[in-house]
């Protein structure tokens, strides 16, 4: 479903990603792990064109989306979250979700003036969807709170919900459980599995090993800008090179 070919990126002469090849098949949950500075988040930024890439190709659904503008990639069904949640802090929780609804008529300038009835109906459906998502995440009670007032874990959850509202076919999650309370971690893992059951595909960056090992079908390990190895969780755990990479042995 998603295929990366030889992605590369350097900043001011410092190569951060040096040729990353990776493939995620439809319906899979794939983990992306590696020590700090391995280039994982940069790979996400390259996939979504948040940063221009130096070399390589990105295929999504057998379509070459390399260099597409960020919003077109999201519209194609590939939606990401951020390591540090980027919520719309001064919007309420439910508005954060509603704004993410794809392809809304009410977001077109002329429709605002010319089709008020249609927009009102669309908004009702959109709000319904947002409540559904809130219930799925167990966040109905904070629906009208400002996003800025949420706890770290709730922010992660809301960002997941917001990405879901965009009706993606695949999600790129950047450390979905970093800084999240242990009770919520199991909850998030459970939600991801439910979503996979509904046909969503996942690529997940995470440092919490027990979480990502239990969740993933397969894992890619990155170190120093390259993919070091790939395999099922138990294979990766048994790989001496992975351990070396984490311990900083080159």
């Amino acid at each position: 479903m998603l295929r990366l070919e030889a992605l590369a990126k350097s900043f001011g002469g410092f190569a951060v990603v040096k040729g990353c090849d990776l493939e995620v098949r439809e319906g899979e949950i794939v983990g992306l792990i590696g020590p700090n500075g391995a280039g994982k988040t940069t790979v996400f930024n390259l996939i979504t064109s948040a940063l221009p890439l130096d070399a390589g190709r990105v295929w999504f659904d057998d379509r070459d989306i390399t260099g597409f503008p960020t919003h077109r990639i999201a519209q194609a069904g590939l939606v990401r979250t951020f390591q540090v949640p980027r919520l719309f802090e001064r919007l309420s929780v439910i508005e954060n979700l509603m704004v993410a609804g794809p392809n809304q008529r009410g977001e077109r300038f002329w429709s605002v003036w010319l089709r008020p009835g249609e927009i009102a109906r669309e908004e009702k459906r959109n709000e319904e969807q947002a409540w559904e998502t809130l219930r799925f995440l167990g966040m109905e009670r904070v629906a009208n709170d400002l996003a800025a007032t949420l706890s770290g874990g709730q922010k992660k959850l809301l960002e997941l919900g917001r990405a879901l509202m965009a009706r993606p076919r695949m999600l790129l999650l950047d450390e979905p459980v970093a800084g999240v309370a242990p009770r919520l971690i199991d909850e998030i893992a459970d939600r991801i599995r439910v979503l996979r059951g509904r046909g969503l595909t996942f690529l997940v960056i995470e440092h919490k090993m027990d979480f990502i090992m239990a969740l993933s079908d397969r894992l890619y390990v990155m170190a120093d800008g390259r993919v070091l190895t790939e395999g099922r969780p138990e294979e990766v755990q048994a790989d001496q090179r992975v351990l070396d990479a984490y311990l900083g042995v080159a």
Binding site: F11, G12, F14, V16, G37, T41
Partner: peptide, 9 residues
């Protein structure tokens, strides 16, 4: 200036 995250790391 070049890579703030790298600097932090």
């Amino acid at each position: 200036a070049d890579v703030p995250d790298l600097a932090r790391v």
